[in-house]
Simulated assay, not measured.
Amino acid sequence: MPEIRNSNNRKLEKQLKAVAHDLNNILSSTMHSITLLKQKIEKGTDEFSLVEIIESNSNRAADIIDVLLDDKKSVTRTLNVSRLLNEVILAFSSTITPELKIKTDIVGEVYKIFGMRSNVYRIIMNLLVNAKESIEGTGEIYISLSNLNNKKAAEIFPNIREANYIQLSISDTGCGISKENISKIFVEEYSTKNKSGISGLGLNIVKEIVTSMGGYIFVESELDKGSTFTVLFPEFKKKEMSKKIGLEKTILISEDDKILLKLLAELLESYNFKVIKTEDGEGCLQEFISESKIDLIIIDKKMPNLDGIDCVRKIREMKIDVPVILSSGSKGEVSSGLLKELKIEKVLHKPYDFEQMLSLIEELVY
């Protein structure tokens, strides 16, 4: 019986990965379409806001796929913390009693940040759960979110790196934390629950995630009055690429999804790259041999006739070191050893951000 269960689990895992691959291709096409639309719609209009909502939901769908696959390598993306915070509050509200009130002061348009959506969700939810556990009976949780420019940030937090930040504060009217315990709450597995009422379990993970994003977390507390946790997320400033970046540069794209191939080519052409399109590895190899100058290859892992890995292997056998970006609808398909052997510089997991691809192209070609 265990053998049958294991066999069924392996089949299910294989089916899930196949479905995820197809869904990620669809999401890639959707997200590249969004990028093209944002180039053509004026910022600040209702139409632009609708496109941003579609973009946010597409990112959310990608995260759901990662969760279904129990994928620990979620993709980092630009995030709208205001929208994400409202989602977390909605989910959290279903877990509390009527005696516990939530008050919010959330700015709608905050700076964008760059990170894993699932990680930011965990940060917010963990802090809310800790606030809830610190309150016995009636009480309030106050949540605020606002922009903090570099000048104001330096005045309030003099020892932080100079930058613009999003400030997230979560306050409660709970029992508070004693002075001797304040310094311990971010220590691994430390918990003050059942002592001062607040659970510190998981706060070390929160701090690790915040720090890995270049942010900061602070806590202020007073016994019998409550606590305030403040998280500073650094603003993500999109690097403005010149539309002339692609002049005199040729990119060979090999992608078997025709819609995705068309959209990606159109996006690259909007930055003045010369783009050669192929739909399988054999076509890619033929174009590479016939074309006198290729500056970069963007190639899909899974393709008919000749897959991306075998195509790159044949190119490397020619002793040619053209830069290669491998795209894949599933994570973990190619070992780091094989990537190193074939001199594949970068791997992009679908659905990827086009701006992320542009940054990689600039890094590899210039």
Score class of each variant (00 low, 15 high):
186 F>G: 12
46 D>A: 11
16 L>M: 13
97 T>S: 09
301 K>R: 11
138 T>Q: 02
293 K>C: 00
312 V>Q: 10
100 L>N: 09
13 E>K: 04
263 L>Y: 01
353 D>P: 04
236 F>R: 12
77 R>V: 00
243 K>M: 07
4 I>N: 05
28 S>R: 05
22 D>T: 04
225 K>G: 04
333 E>T: 13
151 K>A: 11
35 T>D: 08
242 S>Q: 08
290 S>H: 12
269 E>M: 11
274 K>Y: 01
346 K>P: 00
235 E>G: 06
204 N>Q: 11
11 K>C: 10
85 L>S: 01
76 T>F: 10
78 T>L: 07
69 L>A: 02
226 G>F: 00
40 K>V: 06
184 K>R: 15
324 V>N: 06
272 N>W: 01
271 Y>T: 05
324 V>I: 15
341 E>T: 11
184 K>Y: 11
316 R>D: 01
283 G>I: 07
61 A>H: 08
8 N>S: 14
271 Y>F: 15
144 S>C: 05
298 I>F: 13
62 A>M: 04
344 I>S: 09
39 Q>H: 13
55 E>N: 13
119 N>Q: 13
25 N>G: 03
251 I>T: 12
363 E>D: 13
269 E>V: 07
47 E>S: 05
28 S>I: 05
142 Y>P: 01
321 D>K: 15
34 I>P: 00
4 I>A: 08
82 S>K: 00
34 I>K: 08
305 N>A: 11
337 G>I: 00
145 L>V: 01
214 G>P: 09
46 D>M: 09
214 G>W: 03
12 L>A: 11
166 I>A: 02
111 Y>L: 03
237 K>C: 00
223 L>T: 01
79 L>V: 09
171 S>R: 07
39 Q>N: 13
359 S>A: 14
171 S>F: 06
27 L>H: 01
23 L>G: 01
116 M>D: 05
48 F>E: 09
133 E>G: 09
232 L>W: 05
366 Y>D: 12
264 L>G: 02
54 I>V: 15
19 V>D: 08
159 N>L: 14
248 E>T: 02
58 S>Y: 04
245 I>A: 08
49 S>H: 06
252 L>K: 10
19 V>T: 14
249 K>Q: 12
58 S>V: 05
107 V>K: 09
267 L>P: 03
182 I>Q: 12
119 N>Y: 14
238 K>A: 10
186 F>W: 15
142 Y>S: 04
228 T>Q: 13
41 I>L: 08
113 I>P: 14
4 I>H: 03
17 K>A: 12
74 S>F: 08
282 E>C: 05
276 I>D: 04
131 A>P: 04
314 K>D: 10
332 G>R: 15
189 E>L: 15
215 G>K: 08
255 E>H: 12
117 R>T: 00
172 D>F: 03
35 T>W: 13
125 M>E: 14
66 D>F: 03
118 S>G: 08
338 L>Q: 14
216 Y>L: 04
150 N>C: 10
159 N>C: 09
144 S>F: 01
214 G>F: 02
114 F>R: 12
71 D>I: 05
227 S>H: 05
311 C>I: 06
